[in-house]
């Protein structure tokens, strides 16, 4: 079985929940466990949030009445592309932006490293993607945007990191 989907949306924080819900709904045909779904949603959320706040530097989103919230920084124009492919029980996710790109990918992927500590960013984004997905690949160059590719096998029911 092969099933593909493509989504393009504005790089604003309001779309973070939309993106992870869309992937969760897309993958539901494979009958994933609740744990697998939670893992996928977290990983997608991390990748999309990175594209929005680091790629396009959109710190603010829109509030209930369409106003810029919570601060009054300009909202930059840009699109995030989210492609998914289901093939042989494996979910492939690609999150692509045409933002400012990453200079040092290895450093960016270090746990707790963040370029925006003043915005209460934890620096755990890539660490979470690595922990919750089976494979992670990052392609980026300054000024050229960033592409994050992730893979996860669905239906293994593994509960990685469970220490109960």
């Amino acid at each position: 079985m092969k099933n593909e989907m493509e989504l393009t949306f504005d790089a604003i924080s309001n779309n973070e929940s939309f993106a992870r819900m869309a992937v969760a709904a897309f993958v539901s045909t494979l009958n994933p466990t609740l744990e697998e779904l939670a893992d996928i949603k977290t990983a997608v959320s991390e990748a999309v949030t990175n594209a929005i706040i680091h790629g396009y530097e959109n710190i603010c989103g829109y509030g209930k009445y369409g106003e810029v919230r919570p601060c009054f920084w300009p909202v930059n124009q840009g699109k995030v592309q989210l492609n998914c492919l289901l093939c042989e029980g494996v979910l492939h996710i690609e999150v692509k932006d045409e933002g400012k790109g990453i200079e040092d990918i290895a450093q960016a992927m270090e746990p707790l490293y963040t370029t925006k500590p003043q915005l209460n960013r934890s620096g755990m984004g890539f660490a979470f993607m690595e922990a919750f997905m089976d494979e992670l690949e990052v392609e980026s160059a300054p000024g050229k945007g960033t592409t994050v590719r992730m893979k996860k096998k669905i239906g293994t029911g593994a509960w990685i990191g469970s220490e109960e």
């Binding site: 992870r20 209460n120 934890s122």
Partner: peptide, 13 residues
């Protein structure tokens, strides 16, 4: 029901 690394940032901060 859902939290990502932004939640970690809130707590750490």
């Amino acid at each position: 029901r859902f939290m990502d690394s932004s939640g970690i940032g809130i707590i750490m901060g």
